[in-house]
């Protein structure tokens, strides 16, 4: 492998990893704070992609469509928490799995009814449609670099929010001792609603960002969900920092494995996961 090809693959891996982080962060946030294992998280990624396609068809503006989609996802998140997820707090993980798997079917059926089963696509917004030449043949699309930077920005905002703001303090407090937070007069139910809605929105935003560089198809959520779980498990369930490191690891391993050990490439991230769990059974940064 030449140096330039190595660099290109490095960028490929980082970019894929950052997108994985954006999807996985919501999953791990909700699990860490609320103890809820949301299997329907991948569905929200799918919903984000379909929403931005739908509004783009009607408004013609990607930015506006992205904003509307994010707001709708936030509202869907509030609705889901208030009506369904709320029933689960005092129940075991199996009940959570049953309900959230059921939600996957509901979202898939809705997608099929509302938007059909044909593969769909969204064009890259014109202001971000250029490319940077890398080698004689290869270019790197500006949009993909933009998405990578957006993911870094969101990671930064999340870090700041959790560590430096009052909301973040409550989130951290709720994580370690729910009863004590309630005793101090904090409405933990409101906090949970906010956290769950943010988690849903993060998945949807990832779907929105991925839409112009992928195909919008039924089942796209389930496929990404499995990879996200690998990220969350490697990083340590509930750890945002862990999810960030793990997402980059998974992105890089998957990219380099694809070209260096193609026969094993579909297994490599699972081998990585098994290896890390052998050394650190709770994941890299378990809380």
């Amino acid at each position: 492998m030449t140096t330039s090809l190595f660099l290109v693959q490095l960028i490929n891996g980082l970019q894929y990893g950052l997108l994985l982080f954006l999807i996985a962060s919501g999953l791990t946030l909700v699990f860490g704070v609320m103890g809820i294992l949301n299997l329907a998280h991948g569905s929200m990624y799918m919903v984000g992609a379909y929403l931005v396609w739908y509004f783009f068809e009607h408004t013609g503006s990607f930015g506006l469509s992205a904003l509307i989609s994010a707001v709708i996802a936030l509202l869907v998140g509030v609705f889901m928490e208030r009506t369904l997820i709320r029933q689960l707090y005092r129940r075991n993980h199996l009940d959570q799995v049953l309900l959230t798997i059921g939600m996957i079917f509901v979202f898939n059926a809705l997608q099929s009814i509302l938007w059909g089963n044909d593969p769909l696509g969204v064009a890259v917004p014109p202001s971000l449609s250029g490319a940077i030449p890398m080698t004689d043949v290869l270019e790197y699309p500006i949009y993909r670099i933009f998405v990578a930077l957006l993911c870094v920005l969101i990671a930064g905002v999340m870090y700041f929010m959790i560590n430096k703001t009052r909301l973040g303090m409550l989130i951290r407090a709720g994580e370690s001792n729910r009863e004590m937070v309630e005793c101090l007069g904090i409405d933990i139910r409101k906090l949970y609603t906010i956290v769950f809605a943010i988690g849903v929105m993060l998945a949807a935003v990832a779907g929105v960002a991925a839409a112009p560089m992928s195909s919008i198809v039924p089942g796209m959520g389930e496929h990404i969900l499995i990879t996200c779980f690998v990220v969350v498990v490697i990083g340590g369930m509930g750890s945002i920092k862990g999810a960030f490191v793990a997402a980059l690891l998974v992105g890089l391993v998957d990219t380099f494995a694809s070209v260096m050990v193609p026969q094993l490439s579909s297994m490599m991230i699972y081998i990585l996961m098994a290896f890390i769990l052998l050394i650190k059974p709770q994941g890299l940064f378990s809380s």
């Binding site: 330039s4 090809l5 290109v8 693959q9 080698t135 290869l138 070209v259």
Partner: peptide, 11 residues
């Protein structure tokens, strides 16, 4: 995820 493969083809 085709990017890694396409980068290789380009080379």
């Amino acid at each position: 995820e085709f990017q890694a493969y396409l980068s290789e083809i380009a080379s």
